[in-house]
Amino acid sequence: GVSIALSPEELIARIMDAEPPEIFLMKDVKKPFTEANVMMSLTNLADKELVHMISWAKKIPGFVELSLFDQVHLLECCWLEVLMLGLMWRSVNHPGKLIFSPDLCLSRDEGSCVQGFVEIFDMLLAATSRFRELKLQREEYACLKAMILLNSNMCLSSSEGGEELQSRSKLLCLLDSVTDALVWAISKTGLSFQQRSTRLAHLLMLLSHIRHLSNKGMDHLHCMKMKKMVPLYDLLLEMLDAHIMHGS
């Protein structure tokens, strides 16, 4: 497979090339912020970002060689984690703020107008400040995001045929390659062997917080949908429904 043919350096270069462009909301959010217009802006933005995320995933070496079943399920499981890690990366140099897009930055107070959001907001800020303390590098960020995608789903399909088993072994192989790439990226920072192992552990430990945050965010969005606080349509609705369905 492609994953084995590429060196860690080449794989990182391909993963970096796959990075989505800056995405703008392109609509003025009315001030003062209200629950309805903040949620509307955030969901509009998420809908746009999701399309770019599918493009991104397709450019991760080896991803399109997985079965379509696996591609769909990986994306359905990880989409909010990927959005949240991107948000943390954009916000890493802006303490106390979340940079949803270049034209939508919210402080904690501004975010608190949405019921139930402040807890998630604080957790996002805390994880972002941890990345800031660790001085997360762009290459490390890109590897972590690819890892989230490839590690998002351990579920087996009900009818495991030859193609599915082959896809599962390709997936594990790809995950190994991305892990090697992350180790390589860390090794460039000039740390001692011991410090590199510690850094790898610190970065990977943050992924469990991101998964937890994504679950919280998913419940919150589901709740907003049920209360008809925000109309959801198209891709975002489909992705939310898929997640809720997998969860149940």
Binding site: V51, I54, Q71, E238
Partner: peptide, 24 residues
Amino acid sequence: TSLKEKHKILHRLLQNSSSPVDLA
């Protein structure tokens, strides 16, 4: 793959060889 799966937007964007960004 079930019929329901085949109707997913995600499914369509993944299968099509054009860029999802262009399709959307």
